[in-house]
């Protein structure tokens, strides 16, 4: 049986984790490699690194971070942020990423999704979709969501559901759905749009934006609430509020099928 995934996400700026990371039993650190190793050993199902630098030097540093992180973990690694063209995807996959997320560039040129999926396989192309709820017009009952780009600063006029369906039809392997309204609020995912997208598209959906508690993770993954296939979170893990293992236990106790946390045993370690 397929389990629901818990995915910690690290925002990387100029080669360092921003927001700060504070794990139990580890010193305060902004080093992405140390953070990735800690999450890996806690039983994260996957890791996500997002590049939030804007400069070319920052981009090169990011590729180096991807290479160093990939060399330390044995779980899937999704990377994204500023991916504009095929050369960026090639560079990131070459550095050891398993999946690459495209966002604004796919909105500007949807056929990029098909080009990348044909070349690298759907399983490694994630389409990141940032959405915002529109103010309902008089008489409207169902909320409408639009796609926003450039970190939520620019509207596109695209309907979120249609865009997700189009991305799936063009060959995306997964949708990483972030609510800009909820991002950073710590009051939980936007469950309405998460559920709608997840029920509508035939590919896995990763919920993102707004997690402040373990209950929020559960809501995102519950088939009747967010119905997402995977739950992404940043600050609750970074600040040492909860470990991945605690999250897994909570979810399992509340009926969400997750991969049990397994302590390393019986493997010859040479490195």
């Amino acid at each position: 049986m397929l389990k629901r995934r818990v995915i910690p996400c690290l925002d990387i700026k100029n080669g360092r984790v921003v927001k700060g990371v504070h794990f139990a039993n580890l010193r305060d650190t902004g080093d992405p490699v140390e953070a990735a190793r800690a999450y890996d050993s806690q039983g994260a199902d996957e890791l996500c690194l997002l590049d939030i630098t804007a400069t070319t030097e920052g981009r090169d540093t990011f590729v180096d971070v991807v290479r160093r992180v990939a060399g330390q973990i044995f779980t899937p690694l999704t990377v994204g942020g500023g991916v504009r063209r095929e050369a960026d995807v090639r560079r990131l996959l070459g550095a050891g990423a398993d999946k690459v997320a495209v966002n604004s560039a796919a909105v500007a040129n949807p056929l990029l999704i098909r080009q990348l999926a044909d070349r690298y396989g759907s399983q490694c192309i994630v389409v990141a979709v940032d959405v915002r709820q529109l103010k309902p017009l008089p008489g409207e009952t169902d909320p409408l969501y639009e796609v926003v780009i450039h970190g939520g600063t620019r509207s596109t006029g695209l309907d979120a559901l249609s865009w997700c369906e189009q991305a799936a039809a063009l060959g995306a392997g997964e949708i990483l759905l972030t609510s800009m309204d909820k991002d950073g609020t710590r009051d939980g995912y936007d469950l309405a749009i998460t559920r709608e997208v997840s029920q509508r598209v035939p590919i896995p959906v990763i919920a993102s934006g707004g997690v402040g508690s373990l209950e929020h993770l559960r809501q995102g993954l519950d088939p009747k609430e967010g119905a997402a296939d995977a739950a992404l979170a940043a600050s609750i893990f970074h600040f040492g509020l909860y470990t991945i293992a605690q999250a897994k236990h909570y979810l399992a106790d509340h009926g969400i099928p997750v991969r049990p946390h397994e302590a390393p045993r019986g493997v010859l370690i040479t490195g």
Partner: peptide, 13 residues
């Protein structure tokens, strides 16, 4: 009940 996603992606026993 919910339609299963394809690809089969993630951890299975």
């Amino acid at each position: 009940s919910a339609r299963l996603k394809i690809p089969h992606m993630g951890w299975s026993d």
